[in-house]
């Protein structure tokens, strides 16, 4: 069969330059990806954010080798995905969006089947443990709840010990505890050196996991930064708010919130009602960014 090629250390995990892809129907041509540039380093956890229809899925499916591009340069682990062979596929792991297959096989049977495709698979028990399915090894796919099914999807994605893992909305349907468990699993994969490209609609997830986030809209990267720095969050003004004696909400925007609180404390000997210091959350920043884009698009 195929042999697994040695990893070359000096390549980037993902290198995309000028990527374009359009879909043609009888009536119109839609540009799904329009000149995307992106670099993801080995060992990095990268979150790609963006509204539905922004071109996220198309871009990722091109990286995964599912779709051909119209133009641009793409390498994934040093290989053009359009020419990726089995040896290349053994080095990547793909967790697709919602699936409903493998209904008749048990969790262990599905994992064992997929493990046979890879040259150095993880032991099944280890996968069960990593994704939190140790209590359900003999349940069939059809009997798993949405969240447990998703864990099986992730398990199938990591059973081959991928160097690069694509996670497309991996925690949809998870309860908060399962999500925390998932986050710690991702930390474990990071510790092993796995590069991860994650898409998610949960911005707290991107903030907790990602080294960098990219925001994609209209087929283009509109922002690229660390979660803390995105959209100038790091330097944005803080808001100090409290309710005064008359019951009115007071909000003070400031670059020096500590000083403001100190002054407030000095001026008010008692407790200040509902005192809060906030900075824009990733979600606020993201929504503002997407909102501006949307408005911009309508003007065009």
């Amino acid at each position: 069969m195929y042999t697994q090629s040695a990893t070359i250390d000096d390549v980037t995990a993902v290198d995309v330059a000028g990527l374009t892809k359009s879909y043609r129907s009888k009536t119109a041509t839609t540009k799904a990806v329009d000149g995307l540039d992106l670099r993801i380093e080995i060992g990095e956890i990268f979150a790609l954010l963006g509204p539905n229809g922004a071109g996220k899925s198309t871009a990722i499916e091109i990286l995964e080798g599912y779709r051909n591009r119209d133009s641009g340069e793409v390498t994934v682990l040093g290989v053009d995905p359009e020419k990726g062979d089995a040896g290349w596929r053994a080095r990547i792991g793909i967790v697709l969006q919602s699936t409903k297959d493998l209904t008749e096989l048990t969790v262990v049977e599905s994992l064992a089947t997929f493990a046979s495709f890879y040259p150095r698979p993880r032991p099944i028990d280890e996968v069960l443990d990593l994704v939190g399915l140790t209590d359900h090894p003999n349940q069939r796919g059809s009997q798993l709840s949405g969240g447990l099914r998703r864990r099986l999807d992730v398990g199938l994605g990591i059973v081959g010990r991928p160097e690069l893992l694509f996670l497309d909305e991996p925690t949809t349907g998870f309860d908060p505890e399962a999500r925390r468990h998932f986050w710690s699993m991702i930390e474990g994969l990071r510790a092993e050196g796995t590069t991860i490209l994650l898409t998610t609609h949960y911005l707290d997830e991107a903030e907790a996991l990602a080294d960098r986030v990219g925001v994609i809209n209209n087929g283009n990267l509109i922002a690229l930064d660390t979660p803390r720095g995105l959209g100038g969050r790091g330097t944005a003004l803080a808001t100090v708010s409290y309710r005064n004696a008359n019951g009115q909400l007071v909000e003070i925007e400031t670059a020096t919130p500590t000083q403001v609180v100190r002054e407030l404390a000095a001026a008010n000997p008692g407790e200040l009602s509902e005192l809060k210091v906030t900075r824009p959350s990733l979600e606020d920043t993201y929504l503002a960014m997407i909102g501006l884009e949307m408005i911009g698009r309508e003007r065009e």
Partner: peptide
């Protein structure tokens, strides 16, 4: 339809 074929295509399975 259920996505099994696409999933398999994403693995090194010949």
């Amino acid at each position: 339809d259920a996505g099994l074929l696409k999933r398999l295509r994403g693995t090194p399975m010949p």
